[in-house]
Simulated scan of single mutants.
Amino acid sequence: MKAGLCAECKGRGFCGLKECPITKRFYAGLRTRVSKEYMGESPSVFIGSRNYPSVSGGPLMIGESDDPEDWVRRNYSIDDIVGIRAGTIRGNSRYKVKQTLPDLPIQEIALSKKPLDVEVAFEKPVSFDLKFDGILAPVGLSGSIEKLKVLDNASVPVVVDRITSDTDLKATEGVIELYKSGIDHHYITQLLTSGQLGVKRHIVPTRWGITAVDDTISYALKREVMRNPQVSGITMLTASLHANRIICVLLPGEFRFEMIEIWGQGSMWGGSEGDTIVVDSEGEKRKSNYSPITGAYYSARLAVLEYLRSIGRCASVFVVRQVSKDYWAPLGTWVIREASRKAMNSVPISFDDTAAVETEINMILGSRHWRSYSRLLNDIKSQKRLSDFF
Rank of each mutant, 00 (worst) to 15 (best):
V320Q: 13
R90I: 08
L116W: 00
E123Q: 14
V317P: 15
F390H: 01
H185D: 09
R94V: 10
Y307R: 15
S127Y: 15
F14W: 06
A355F: 06
Q322P: 00
L197F: 06
C9N: 14
S316E: 01
A355P: 01
D152M: 00
L221H: 01
L377G: 05
G48H: 13
D275G: 02
D129G: 11
V82W: 05
L5E: 10
Y52L: 07
I84T: 08
C20T: 00
Q196V: 04
V55E: 02
L221G: 02
A296S: 12
D388W: 13
H369R: 12
S281R: 13
F14H: 08
T23Y: 07
M61S: 03
G233H: 12
D70M: 13
R12M: 11
V159T: 05
S155K: 12
I203E: 05
V45G: 02
E258H: 05
D133F: 04
R90H: 15
Y76I: 02
S299H: 10
D326H: 10
I293R: 05
S155E: 14
V118T: 04
V225K: 07
A137M: 08
S272V: 09
G253T: 09
W334L: 00
Q99F: 06
R337Q: 12
L104G: 03
S346E: 12
F128W: 06
K113T: 00
T206Y: 03
Q99N: 11
Q383D: 14
E108S: 08
V156N: 07
R313K: 09
R368G: 09
I203F: 11
I364F: 13
L241T: 06
A329T: 01
I22K: 00
I349A: 11
K147V: 02
V213F: 03
K131G: 03
W269G: 03
G312R: 05
D352S: 15
R12I: 07
P205S: 03
E19L: 06
D103A: 10
I188S: 09
V118P: 00
E273P: 07
A171Q: 04
G274R: 00
R375I: 15
F14R: 10
W263L: 07
V249Y: 07
F46N: 05
L141K: 06
R85P: 11
S54P: 10
V139N: 01
V225R: 02
D215L: 04
P68Y: 15
K131T: 06
R368I: 14
N228S: 10
A28I: 10
A355M: 04
Y290R: 08
I311G: 12
I109R: 04
I89D: 09
I106D: 00
I380M: 08
I109Y: 03
I176M: 05
A28M: 12
S194Q: 03
A137D: 09
I145H: 03
A296F: 08
A7L: 12
V225D: 03
G253P: 13
R337P: 01
S310F: 01
G253Y: 15
G29V: 10
I361D: 09
K285T: 12
V320K: 11
I210Q: 02
S272K: 14
I145W: 00
V279T: 13
D152W: 01
R375E: 11
N362T: 13
L302W: 03
I84R: 07
F318R: 07
Q99P: 09
G264N: 14
N244W: 02
S232T: 14
F46A: 01
P229Q: 01
V72Y: 14
D280P: 00
Y95W: 11
K200M: 10
